[in-house]
Design a binder for these strands. Structure first.
Lengths: 348, 348
DNA sequence: TTGAAAGCGCTAACAA
DNA sequence: TTGTTAGCGCTTTCAA
């Protein structure tokens, strides 16, 4: 087809800048400068080259550019633990943020298998990604990503590396808990129980701490039950909490929305009314859960989308050469629905 | 640092095959052949080169290879409609499948905005992806992806293009419905209602057709209610279905698990027992929903992971040059839990 | 203002 | 068995 190219090439060859140059009757270098807007030249030449490029449908090959620039304008996301309910909003917002900076995102799932993780990292390194994002839903700290010392920067989001120097972005679980409990305190609740998930989650311990601090500063009490992350456990907890009417709470702060939903259902079945008798607060603002609860659930939102955007911003700084490290926590917010009763607080 | 490289390069330069060749005391070509396992040469030389490569941490630059091969070993996933509950398992399995073929996956979200979609496609074309996957949760057919005629192949999964020639992969909604309704028929149910979502979803129409066919071939009846995809609607539907005890169904086949959950809750509150009085079947096998229902929900699984894997396989064939088109539907399966009563069917 | 040529990191055809 | 060389598509110096 192209006589200047003796070797038959496999695949679908697309027009190159050489083709543009030839058809526009200029040299390769001139065509390049014309298209990139660099250098000085007759506007006429520039326009002509641009026109030809458009006509033949020329689009520069990023791979070739990257080779030259030593920058690929790509980043890799490694997710241990399958992408899930929590990673998703983060990754989605991250992708959007990076796309606005003209970066493309490789997605790969290591499913908690170190060998697969290594393979994915190697593949992405070979593709010369400019940075890595590690995300996960993990109870504890994970080993840091194994990449060479002078390799691309790494940021951990919704996960922590066992390295103080690593840059980690997490929700402020303790602050989130305080937001919820303080809300209950403001509503005049006097016995605020906390029903939550397994303590090997750092988030569980932090939320518990927040709950405790809020109780203490309000000078009130409440019992604590740690279990699993399920509606079932939420329901069970109600029989424990309300076994003795004398010590029964007038509010329950739950470790997640599933537990809260279980609590609400079990209370209704005992004819204890939410929110008039007992207020309930959840955690996560998992909308499909929170909105289907009866009454709809007041809960804590971890602002995962904002976390995704912030991850993107920080990553750009890292790629730009800045040195950042340490753990950063982003604030949560309170989403008020109907499970706590009257309030004058703003809805957003 | 490297005297052979006069120009200072930005970014993090990594060892090249040239470095390996120099340190191993062989020519560039030899080093290349040695590492790729091609050609004949003294095993000693090969070993030596490999050792040097390992020592200096050489990993070939895929970008350079791609440039040469005219194949990038990457594919792009375009999701309209944010990645969601349905896309996730598909994309996850797809990524796994492609990773096993040494392909990396670009992820991008077009959020239903044609302009953003065009930008994403252009960016991925510039990165010379070898194929596209389009996924979405959409009610109706979407316009086909705008790429040049000789561009990379495209496969639509969990979405349909408005082009008969396009290759689309979808769940067999009608068959899935029949699976669920036939199960109820086998259990001896005589009045099987269908409560489902909005009819502008093709899936709703197909599931309804399946339900009807099963009823007809069993010679039984049941009423039909179309509404929205929510628990709330599931609860409301119960008051309609059971307003008149005489025409009340003894089974409800639901368009999704949320509706089913609403139905189950509302029945319990009316002291109608599931499954002894009424059997309930859902659709989606959304585990967190189905397992938390009381009783746990028998439902239809669309085998989204298998759909993801199949997408990967088909894409490899397309990339290999095969021509495939038309709509393909993958079978659903019945997941038996406790909401239908006694059965002798296998659990999986 | 434009052209020629070197080079990014790698592969493969051809020579030696 | 090994080395030399010409590209892949693009950018950028340097010379004309």
């Amino acid at each position: 087809m192209d006589e200047k190219n003796p070797r038959a090439r496999p695949g679908l060859s697309r027009p190159t800048i050489r083709d543009v140059a030839r058809l526009a009757g200029v040299s390769l270098g001139t065509a390049s400068k014309a298209l990139s807007g660099q250098g000085r030249m007759r506007p006429e030449t520039r326009r002509n080259v641009a026109q030809v490029a458009k006509d033949i449908g020329f689009h520069p090959n990023d791979l070739a550019q990257s080779l030259h620039r030593n920058r690929s304008y790509t980043v890799g996301i490694i997710s241990n633990d399958n992408f899930g309910r929590f990673s998703f909003p983060i990754v989605e917002a991250l992708e959007e943020q990076l796309a606005s900076e003209r970066f493309a995102v490789f997605m790969s799932n290591a499913t908690d298998d170190p060998e697969r993780e290594r393979a994915h990292v190697a593949a992405l390194m070979a593709k010369r990604v400019d940075g890595f994002v590690v995300t996960a839903r993990r109870a504890d700290r994970r080993p840091k990503l194994q990449i060479p010392a002078n390799g691309p920067p790494v940021i951990y989001v919704f996960s922590r590396a066992d390295d103080e120097e690593a840059l980690c972005l997490l929700p402020d679980d303790e602050g989130g808990a305080r937001l919820g409990v303080d809300h209950l305190v403001r509503l005049g609740r006097k016995r605020i129980a906390h029903v939550t998930g397994p303590e090997h989650f750092e988030a569980v311990r932090l939320r518990r701490d927040g709950w405790q601090k809020s109780l203490r500063s309000a000078g009130i009490e409440g019992s604590y039950l740690s279990g699993v992350w399920s509606e079932q456990w939420g329901r069970e907890s109600v029989s424990k909490l309300f076994a003795d009417r004398k010590t029964a709470p007038d509010a329950v702060f739950c470790g997640n929305d599933q537990i809260a939903r279980g609590v609400i259902d079990a209370l209704r079945e005992r004819s204890i009314y939410v929110p008039s008798d007992v207020s309930v607060v959840g955690f996560d603002n998992w909308e499909v859960m929170a909105e289907a609860a009866r009454p709809p659930l007041t809960t804590i939102d971890m602002n995962l989308k904002e976390m995704g955007r912030e991850t993107g911003r920080l990553l750009m700084e890292l790629i730009g050469g800045k040195h950042l490290h340490g753990t950063r926590r982003l604030p949560c917010s309170l989403v008020i629905r109907d499970s706590c009763g009257a309030t004058r607080a703003a809805k957003h």
